[in-house]
Amino acid sequence: MYNALLRAPGATAALIAESLNLSPARIRRALGALERSAMVSRTPGPVALHTRPARRRP
């Protein structure tokens, strides 16, 4: 899914789900995992892709 975001930065979760033929719930779970690892941030509307790894907070 991260690769799909790289190909379509700013895509919505619904668009990602449709393009990958996955359920919206599966996309939300995957986005949650990517968000916890600081690779993306979710906002109302499109997903923000982080091009540089964020620093982990202690």
Rank of each mutant, 00 (worst) to 15 (best):
H50V: 02
R57C: 06
R7N: 12
L5A: 01
L49M: 05
G45P: 01
L15H: 10
A48Y: 10
P46T: 05
G10K: 08
P58G: 14
L5P: 00
L15S: 15
A54I: 07
V40W: 02
G10N: 11
L34E: 02
L31G: 03
T43L: 09
R52C: 05
T12N: 00
L20G: 01
A33T: 11
E35G: 06
L6E: 12
A17F: 04
A4V: 01
L34N: 00
L15R: 14
T51Y: 15
P46K: 05
A38Q: 14
V47W: 02
R52Q: 14
A54M: 12
A8I: 01
N3P: 01
L22R: 12
I16W: 04
L5T: 00
M39V: 08
V47E: 00
S23Q: 15
N3W: 11
A25S: 14
R29D: 11
A30M: 06
A14V: 06
E18M: 07
A30Y: 06
R52S: 11
N3E: 15
L6N: 11
P9L: 07
A11D: 07
R36D: 15
E18V: 09
R26V: 09
L5Q: 04
R42F: 05
N21H: 15
R28F: 06
A38V: 02
L6M: 13
E35K: 09
I27G: 04
G45A: 08
A30T: 05
H50M: 04
R57S: 12
P44F: 06
I27C: 01
P24S: 13
R29E: 14
A11P: 01
A17M: 06
S19Y: 03
A17K: 00
V47Q: 04
A4F: 02
E35Q: 15
A54V: 12
A8P: 03
M1W: 05
N3V: 09
M39W: 09
T51D: 07
R28S: 14
R52I: 07
T43H: 13
E35H: 11
L15P: 00
P58R: 13
